[in-house]
Design a protein around this nucleic acid. Structure first.
Length: 383
RNA sequence: UCCUGAGUAGCUCAAUCGGUAGAGCAUCCGGCUGUUAACCGGAGGGUUGUAGGUUCAAGUCCUACCUCAGGAG
């Protein structure tokens, strides 16, 4: 089945229900993509991911290119076979690494020069080369190489990054178009909108990118340090400029409340390291807010992490036990915490799909905040 | 009983010629947004075994005692 996006319904509030079809299966949207940068969602097996409710995962072109190298993944039969994940895979282009590895990069209109964070070797990546690498990796959704500007970023610099992103989008699409059939599977290329926090730049970027007719569009360069109100304003504005019949992907977002607000503004796809990274570092997300496992209050708290959760961790283990695992440095701790937080995220999205289907997203959102807290960062009730 | 060595933060140890006590771990608390992250940051915590002495000044030098370890008998 070729790539397709079917917009099923739109809630009166603006939230969208849809379905993405790929040769590796379907993704009901709005959806959250667990981040598996190096071809693994840290601590999670493929079966764990399925049981947590994942339908699509994200991997990173830059990291896989450095290690093990895209040729090895190609020899293995592609990323799906290599990591034994038969669902859809989206690969990020490495555009974010332009920002996160800023000390090791030099950027020009031709492309980006990376100094490998592993061995210091230098690599020059062009937008064309990044598409070719992703074709070798075998992802279902490829992202164009973009220039993700830092924050704060003045207007001229943001304009330059957005213009470069548009130039690179054209060059990316010139490799084989925006839909490429390879190995019996259709691979699609998503464009990325930039423009920092400047409405005029966001609008211009939208026009330039959508002119290239990508099968999907990402909103990039947000949640890089700007105030939340600005993030939401940019999401809202950008979503309005994007074609309704194509999926919209808000890159790198976010906290549960950020995702709820993104869905409310018509976003279909999200990814973020927060549920996995924070879990490994001892903080999990629950229906009542975040829970910092290492805190002493949980030493004798024998309740599950989240009484409303049905994950393996919550069905089997207590807060006190998880705290013990973290305090002793046992590796089961990060694993059980990751299982929980991903389950929580993925089921939060499932819940949102349900209420959009039933046209009651707005009321549900109020209920969510009553339980979770407006700030979304409160410590859950003490024992 | 004698000889030698050692007693400093909860633990393991630093501290120059005598100059006004630090670190790692542990504890407690934060942070983490397209992963350079099982990571990073902060805080609390001391009558330096006890009692004297020398000195402007003692964790440091001297005396006695206490405790521990090793050795001798």
């Amino acid at each position: 089945m070729p790539f397709d996006f079917n917009l099923i319904s739109v809630d009166p509030a603006g939230a969208r229900l849809g379905r993405i079809s790929t040769d590796h299966g379907a993704v009901d949207t709005p959806a959250f993509m667990p981040v598996g940068t190096q071809g693994t969602v840290k601590t999670m097996s493929s079966r764990d991911l399925r049981e947590a409710g994942a339908s699509i995962i994200l991997a990173n072109t830059y990291h896989l290119y450095l290690r093990p190298g895209e040729k090895i993944i190609e020899e293995a039969g592609g990323i799906h076979r290599f990591m034994s994940w038969d669902g859809p895979v989206l690969t990020d282009s490495g555009g974010f690494q332009v920002l996160s590895l800023a000390d090791l990069t030099r950027i020009g209109d031709d492309g980006v020069e990376f100094k490998s964070h592993l061995d210091g070797s230098t690599h020059f990546l062009t937008p064309e080369r990044v598409v070719e690498i992703q074709l070798s990796i075998g992802s279902d959704v490829m992202m164009v190489l973009d220039h993700c500007a830092s924050y704060p970023c003045d207007h001229p610099a943001a304009a330059e990054a957005a213009a470069r992103t548009a130039l690179w989008a054209r060059r990316s699409a010139s490799v084989g178009g925006t839909r490429i059939v390879r190995g019996g599977c259709e691979r699609v290329l998503f464009g990325i909108v930039q423009g920092s926090v400047y409405p005029d730049l966001r609008e211009r970027s939208c026009r330039e990118i959508t002119a290239l007719d990508f099968p999907g569009y990402a909103i990039g360069g947000l949640s890089v340090g700007e105030p939340k109100a600005e993030t939401l304003e940019m999401v809202e504005l950008t979503a309005r400029c994007l074609p309704a019949e194509r999926p919209r992907y808000l890159m790198g977002v976010g906290f549960p409340e950020d995702i709820v607000e993104g869905v409310a503004r018509g976003v279909d796809l999200f990814d973020c390291v927060l549920p996995t990274r924070n879990a490994r570092n001892g903080t999990v997300f629950t229906s009542e807010g975040k829970l910092v496992l290492k805190n002493a209050v949980y030493a004798r708290d024998f309740r599950p992490l989240d009484s409303r959760c049905g994950c393996e961790t919550c069905r089997t283990y207590s807060r006190a036990y998880l705290r013990h695992l973290f305090n002793t440095g046992e590796m089961l701790g990060p694993r059980l915490a990751t299982i929980h937080s991903l389950y929580f995220y993925l089921h939060l999205l499932e819940e949102m799909r349900q209420v959009i289907r039933e046209q009651r997203f707005e009321r549900w959102r109020e209920e969510f905040y009553r339980r979770y807290g407006r700030s979304g960062t409160k410590i859950v009730s003490r024992p």
